[in-house]
């Protein structure tokens, strides 16, 4: 188990090194040119930007994320259940059916409320 941890951490470290080494080499060999203030403005189809970018955005993104969390927890249980399913069989089948039905009631509620329709 510790071996897996070291592999993952070491690989993440090596990957970061790879990315920033390449970006660094690019920084060394590329040219940099200073220009007027319009160069640093965000590109929004040609006109100068106005209004607050880091402001409010649609609520539908948040509701999808909320639904995702519920189903993601369900997935953790389902995968572990599938792993030991060979020993459970009928009992496991019925209990997982009940568990998923409870979640599907929630999905159906969200569906009827119109959450799944993008607005």
């Amino acid at each position: 188990m510790t071996s897996a941890l070291w592999y993952v951490l070491g690989f993440a470290f090596a990957g970061f090194t790879f990315v920033f080494l390449t970006v660094g080499i690019s920084w060394l060999i590329s040219h940099r040119h200073r220009s007027d203030r319009h160069k640093g403005l965000p590109y929004e189809s040609g006109i100068d930007t106005f209004g607050d970018t880091w402001g409010r955005f649609g609520l539908s993104f948040y509701i999808y994320a909320l639904l995702f969390v519920a189903f993601d927890i369900e997935i953790i249980f389902i995968v572990l259940w599938a792993l030991v399913y060979g020993d459970l069989l009928l009992g496991g089948f019925i209990s997982m059916l009940l568990f998923v039905l409870v979640l599907l009631v929630g999905l159906g509620y969200a569906w009827r409320k119109g959450v799944l329709t993008w607005k």
């Binding site: 690019s26 920084w27 590329s30 160069k39 403005l41 965000p42």
Partner: peptide, 12 residues
């Protein structure tokens, strides 16, 4: 080509 391009950070 991408390696030799200018790597630019916007001001904001």
């Amino acid at each position: 080509k991408v390696l030799a391009k200018e790597d630019f950070t916007p001001t904001g």
